[in-house]
Amino acid sequence: MTLLGSGHDEPLGVLMSRHGDELVRFFLLRSRDPHAAQDLANETFFRIFSKARTFEPKKPFRPWFYTVALNVWRAWQRRRKPPEVPLQVLPEAAEEEQAAASTSAEEQAKRLLERLSDVDREILVLRHYEGLQLKEIAKRLGLSPGAVYTRLFRALEKLREAGPNDESV
């Protein structure tokens, strides 16, 4: 970070290899759009480079990193306009099936995320990226801690059933 703060961008590669995928997942959970997630991750690393001087080395890196990411996300939400799609370019039903059959990682991620509700995804983000306890998440979302636990567990099961099973406790 000290090197970044002095204007050298070489350490970005190291940061990207350590935190890049997890950051993309952070944006995937929020946006459900793999392309947007990649753009937002790029923008976050750009901001990390620009704001490296504001990082205090005595403080932990992760909360600062995800605060920058959260700000990038909020700015993106403000910029985003509702998509306007002319009727004639809407895909036919057959094209939708074709798209569903795609096996790319993006499509897989999309399909997985479509199985989760907005609240489930928010719970995952708050738990994993913000490190909140269940009762804190409950307070934030207006749910009971038990409901948060149930939703979180169901979300984990959905991810496990649909994705490659390599997780362990």
Partner: peptide, 22 residues
């Protein structure tokens, strides 16, 4: 926490962030 991290790690990431783009 480990269970959540494990489940999220299974979420496939297509293209990660790109150094040239940044």
């Amino acid at each position: 926490s480990r269970r959540v991290a494990g489940a999220l790690a299974a979420l496939p990431v297509g293209a990660g962030p790109s150094l040239p783009a940044v």
